[in-house]
Simulated scan of single mutants.
Amino acid sequence: MATTKETSRDKEAEAASLVSRLEADLLGGVFRPGEWLKQTDIETNYDAHRFDVRMALLDLKTRQLLEHVPNRGYRVASLSQQDREELIEARTVLEVAAARRVVERATDDDVAELDQIVAEFDANMEDADLPLLRALNAKFHDRLYAICGNRVMMEEIKALRHRGLPGVRGWRANSAIQRSNRDHGDMVAMIRARDADGLVHAIERHLNRWREE
């Protein structure tokens, strides 16, 4: 017979799993910007308890992946032009600061690992498996900023990146996918060359690709 402590841990694990699954679907473009999320639908589609659904929606709202409208419910965050401009400005400040630390701290193994992610992305580009490419894109950025050695900075960069993703269904054309990975390759080349200014330029260009798309 399960103990009270084991039952509590199981419930916590289920709640955490629901948050992770909803977050993955929000970031993966399963829902559209501004789409309303009905609690009853989530209970059914995710086989979740009502209390866990409410807590998950509140968690995701706190992270600004969802918006809450009184007497209406929760909907997927939808960024205005100004919202996105301000988000990119904030990301630029943090990512530029992190980039200089990355160049100082990166080891040969770090560079090789980033190279491997770029190569794996390139190898899967022809099939245009968007969920896989999105996962590899996230893996590259997470690994890049982990090198800076500042956990708070890394987590804030990741949180800001996620805030720009809900409802975005990925790149709109193969050319955009190719440009994105070329940018990644350029970043790795700048780190290998210990060129902090070059890395900063590559990151700023990468952050503003959305304007072209």
Rank of each mutant, 00 (worst) to 15 (best):
T7Q: 12
K11S: 13
K11Y: 14
A13K: 15
A13H: 13
E14H: 10
L18Y: 05
L22G: 03
E23F: 01
G29I: 10
E35K: 00
E35M: 03
L37Y: 00
L37C: 00
N45A: 10
D47P: 10
A56W: 10
L57G: 14
L66S: 02
V69K: 15
Y74E: 00
Y74L: 00
S80R: 03
Q82T: 13
E86W: 09
V102M: 01
V103G: 09
V103M: 13
D109Q: 09
L114P: 00
A119H: 12
F121A: 03
A123I: 00
M125P: 06
D127N: 11
D127V: 14
A128G: 07
R134L: 08
R134W: 00
D142G: 10
R143I: 01
A146E: 15
G149N: 09
R151G: 03
R151L: 06
E156S: 09
I157Q: 05
L160W: 03
R161V: 09
R172T: 06
R172A: 01
N174F: 11
Q178P: 04
D186H: 00
A189W: 07
M190S: 05
D195Q: 02
G198S: 02
G198H: 05
L199I: 08
A202T: 05
R211M: 14
E212F: 01
E213Q: 14
